[in-house]
Amino acid sequence: MSKEKIAICEDLADIMPPEYHELVESATFGNQDRGWKDIGSSKELIEQHSLCAGCPESIAFRYILASLPAPENTVFVGSTGCTSLVFPHVAVQNIHSLFGNQNAIASGLKRALKCRFPDIEKDVVVLAGDGATVDIGLDMTMQSWFRQEKFTTICFDNELYANTGGQESGLMQKGFVAKMAPKGKNFEKVRLAEIARESGCAYVAVLTVSKPNRVEQAIKNAVLVAREVGPTFVQLYTPCILEIGKQSMEGLDEMKDAESIGGRFVQKEYITDEAQKLLDSIKEETKARKKAAKEAKKSVNA
């Protein structure tokens, strides 16, 4: 879907629910500078969600959807897990894949879109949980990185299988006791960011979703680098408050603790020289564009 197609047929517009009128009138499709600050002042691309109250994944979804550089030309590939409950509520094209297959599906999709729309930059973004990314789908995930498939992989890391009651996952921290892992985990948390770097990802970021500006920057970097350079990976800590015994209001504190010095999710990035060069040039271009716009506005006012 391109932004020109986000329009309702005139003859049936008067029976469409209000949220769709809002989507057409005040969503940020086509706005080059869209970001998390639009939340609250324009129509978001997520309408309700079916996650638990206070779930950090819902916050992550809102920030990611607000940060995509071109949502009208983006296709998400999801997988089994809590995230798959949200996609029916999202105003971005998306595909659900079999558990663990998401990066294989995304590889084919990206190539097909390249053939079908050679003149349009179509972004493919995989969004899956840690079970799909690291355990069941690690083969497909890594193979897509080895092949240098140009799309972004986002992993919602809640350190266990939350959707099915709290089983141990590869990203669970060592020694953690969960409802379905009563003996505690015997092994260290898989160092997925380092695996991604060594597997050929041009941009890798690990962070929590406690700070929207950081999430926005990581998502934008990942998508823009994936367009030009190669595969990118973003690992976001989205703790399952139910499975770690927290209250609805405690998700944010949990993330802040995890990102403090010595924590498991201190923010880190790995960027190749080529990717860094690209990001620097984009930054310069954006700066120049904004400056020109500001000056144009000034001259109009004068």
Partner: peptide, 17 residues
């Protein structure tokens, strides 16, 4: 038929009305 995917669809919406 609710979304204006193309002119053909818009025409179909008119016919439905």
């Amino acid at each position: 038929v609710l979304w204006k995917w193309n002119d053909h669809v818009a025409e179909k919406a008119t016919a439905i009305r």
